[in-house]
Design a protein around this nucleic acid. Structure first.
Length: 742
DNA sequence: TGGTTTAGCCC
DNA sequence: GTACGGGCTAAACCAT
């Protein structure tokens, strides 16, 4: 019972366990998941569908599902062996099916999906894929799911499995062999490189080897002891290909090698799919080449995730490195052509992403100087405040309580103190619903503020400091779905707007900080993109201000400061797709008043409204949004469950993306000129550029002039002409105390 | 030890 | 029942 399809089918789909629909109808995949599966089932060949588990476990936690899968294992095997014909391929959907069919209960579906596992239950074996229900919950990539199933369908139709690529490699062992190898390849048109390192940190961790290839299927590995002899290799005319080249060139440049990023397979992968988390080399190689898992080679030497690659024996490391390098060559050939065939992606890749690699190498390398005195002062001050607030909460509770624990605080507020709110959450919004003058609420809010400030922005920052007194973050070009940069280790894009905390970031002696930021960049983009006459008029006039105009539109000409605040919030809320309820919450007013504000805004700016509406239709119409910088937003699986979220993403995508690219391009353009003025970019925050500038009036003036002018010019050069872009400069010695100077 | 949940900071 | 787009980090908690 519980199966459907043809018993002589060449392809078998194995799901997890029946849901209510399936129990009722005695057939698998009849509900929402069934719809997803139906969209990818082959329509030219028969198929058979069953489940790994036939019972209906009450709780679907992994341990119980594993147990159930083990129980049902022999039943499933019996079912599959008794099909009329042996299938060519079996698709395992979700962890339990994969566990049961492979017998390996340690596997994880997100890591194994799309790979071919041998099995005598079918001719070619098992292909694990994500379960459709996981896709419906917004996990994983629908595009990958479709590709995985397509591969399985092709095998069922009689095509051959992909053959995992194999490469030969050599490791020159004498200096003369190294020199001969360099001489042979340094002026070839294209070299593909990949390094292995003793850690992720280019300031402290060793460079262990460099793999280079120039033609399919053969790699040269230059080992550690010859790194210093590789200078001529990087002085030839070859163009260099890397996977996340910004990482590699930072290590190589440290060693005095003139490495550069001409091509980058990670960025190609990001061009082809903007969703994060899909672009690491192993993953791309597996998807495009059918490359098998080769991490197993080095795993025995890496007991912990953090163990350094220095613990791997040299011969094993070189063996591993040659696969990385060879695979990079393989995926480059495929993806470079795919990008070339799409003019917008080609534009994005060549004009934005590759130049941005070089920019960000420098920003990361420069780092941001931290004042350790100020760090210490904040540490002491916040520690004291944390203790004070914590002891207040202890006293209120009457026992020792951890204010950092949401569970304990929830118990305190809703059980011990009997406060009545909405649900049992203790987050900021929920606390707003509780009596604001209650000492527990006051203390908890204060505690949260200072605890966050200290743990993340003081002690957390201190852990990231290097010998040079600076933090050196990593900026990710592939970290967002919109094209904004992401930043980590530490994240310098979310430092609190609190003078004491921002003052931890300073200019070195003899320099000052200048921050130039675009004024209302996203709203200006919305005006320019939509061509809304009223918005454009405001931004093109000298005396008008959007916030003032909207305040007048919403509340009449005699608005007060509170009403102006609301107007401002509506302006920024609109571009994020905020709704009446959420605005009403913020201002403690009725939903109908929230709705009135939104309606008035859209009435004042009808074309902006229309533009947003058109964007919102993209997910339903299965359209891809494209910006003039070539960024794309693709909508994978659209369901009634995620439609609203996707519409909000769509509505927000164009102006967020373009505003960010204007800043990025301005930074790319000014950086070489800044270098000549002994000026360094030390941070980028979506619509602003922070620099350290020699403290003399002439340079300061030149830098401000250059950056402001460039931020104004970039949109014009990219065809955004309906609205001017205005940038403001602030300066000072500490980031928290910058002052606007005429 | 590692993954998930909750919370809070930025544009 | 939900309600705002895009991110990162820390601490607690829980399973292994």
């Amino acid at each position: 019972m519980g199966a459907r399809g043809e018993t002589q089918a060449p392809i078998v789909f194995v799901g997890e366990s029946p849901g209510l629909q399936e129990i009722k109808l005695r057939k698998p995949f009849m509900g929402q998941s069934g719809k997803v599966l139906n969209s990818v089932l082959p329509n030219d060949i028969p198929y058979y569908i069953t489940n790994a588990v036939q019972c209906f476990p009450k709780a679907k936690d992994p341990a119980k599902m594993a147990k159930a899968a083990k129980c049902c294992n022999s039943r499933l095997e019996h079912e599959l062996r008794n099909l009329e014909t042996k299938p060519k391929i079996i698709v395992a959907m979700g962890n339990p099916a994969m566990w049961s069919l492979t017998g390996n209960y340690a596997l994880k579906i997100t890591q194994e999906r799309g790979k071919l596992f041998p099995s005598d239950l079918s001719e070619h074996g098992i292909i694990p894929v994500l379960h459709p229900a996981a896709l419906l919950r917004g996990m994983g990539s629908y595009r990958k799911f479709v590709k995985d199933i397509e591969y399985a369908n092709d095998l069922a139709r009689g095509e051959s499995p992909r053959i995992p690529p194999k490469y030969t490699y050599e490791v020159p062992e004498t200096l003369s062999d190294v020199n001969a190898a360099i001489h042979k390849i340094k002026d070839l048109p294209l070299l593909i490189g990949d390094i292995e390192t003793g850690g992720l940190n280019n300031r402290t961790d060793p460079l262990l080897c460099l793999g280079v290839t120039w033609k399919p299927k053969h790699v040269i590995i230059f080992s550690e002891e010859f790194i210093q002899d590789l200078k001529p290799l990087f002085q030839g005319s070859a163009k260099w290909v890397w996977h996340n080249g910004k990482f590699d060139i930072a290590f190589l440049r440290r060693e005095g090698l003139n490495a550069k990023v001409d091509e980058d397979t990670m960025l190609l992968s990001y061009c082809l799919d903007e969703n994060p988390g899909l672009h690491d080399l192993e993953q791309v190689s597996s998807d495009l080449l059918g490359a098998p898992d080769y991490k197993y080679m080095v795993k025995p030497y890496l007991p912990k995730k953090t163990t350094s690659y220095t613990n791997i024996p040299k011969d094993v490391l070189h063996d591993y490195a040659h696969l990385d390098c060879g695979n990079t060559e393989g995926i480059f050939q495929i993806m470079r052509n795919q990008v070339k065939r799409d003019p917008s992606l080609e534009l994005l890749y060549t004009k934005t992403l590759i130049p941005a690699s070089e920019l960000l190498y420098h920003v990361e390398h420069n780092g941001f100087l931290v004042d350790q005195e100020q760090l210490k002062k904040n540490d002491i001050r916040l520690e004291k405040q944390i203790e004070e607030e914590a002891s207040k909460l202890n006293e209120i509770a009457g026992y020792s309580i951890n204010a950092n624990s949401p569970i304990q605080m929830s118990k305190l507020l809703y059980d011990d103190l009997g406060l009545k709110g909405r649900g049992r959450s203790t987050n900021k919004k929920s606390l707003e619903k509780l009596p604001q003058n209650h000492p527990a609420i006051i203390a908890l809010k204060a505690f949260r503020k200072v605890a966050k400030a200290r743990s993340t922005y003081v002690t957390g920052l201190a852990k990231r400091l290097f010998d040079d007194g600076r933090v050196h973050p990593t900026f990710l070009l592939h970290g967002t779905k919109t094209g904004r940069l992401a930043c980590r280790g530490p994240n310098l894009q979310n430092i609190p707007r609190d003078a004491e905390l921002r003052n931890q970031f300073i200019a070195p002696k003899g320099y000052i900080l200048i921050e130039v930021d675009l004024n209302q960049a996203e709203l200006r983009c919305l005006a320019a993109l939509s061509g809304d006459e009223a918005m454009c008029e405001i931004y093109n006039s000298d005396g008008m201000s959007l916030h003032d105009e909207v305040a007048t539109a919403l509340f009449g000409p005699n608005w007060d400061s509170e009403q102006k605040m609301r107007a401002k919030a509506v302006n920024f809320g609109i571009v994020y797709g905020r709704e009446a309820y959420s605005l009403a919450e913020e201002f403690n007013t009725s939903t109908s008043e929230g709705q009135r504000m939104i309606n008035s805004w859209f009435a004042r700016f009808p074309k902006a409204h229309q533009f947003i509406q058109i964007c919102r239709q993209a997910p339903m119409k299965n359209q891809t949004l494209v910006t003039l910088f070539g960024r794309k937003k693709r909508f994978g699986l659209v369901t009634k469950h995620n439609l609203k979220d996707l519409q909000n993403e769509a509505a927000n995508f164009p102006h967020q993306s373009i505003a960010s690219d204007i800043t990025l391009h301005a930074a790319i353009r000014v950086r070489p000129k800044l270098t000549k003025m002994d000026t360094r970019i030390v941070n980028l925050v979506h619509d602003s550029i922070v620099m350290e500038v020699p403290n003399n009036p002439e340079t300061i003036n030149n830098v401000k002039h250059l950056v402001i002018k460039t931020m104004r010019q970039v949109p014009i050069d990219w065809g955004i002409t309906r609205v001017p872009f205005i940038a403001d400069a602030k300066e000072g010695t500490r980031w928290g105390s910058l002052k606007k100077v005429a």
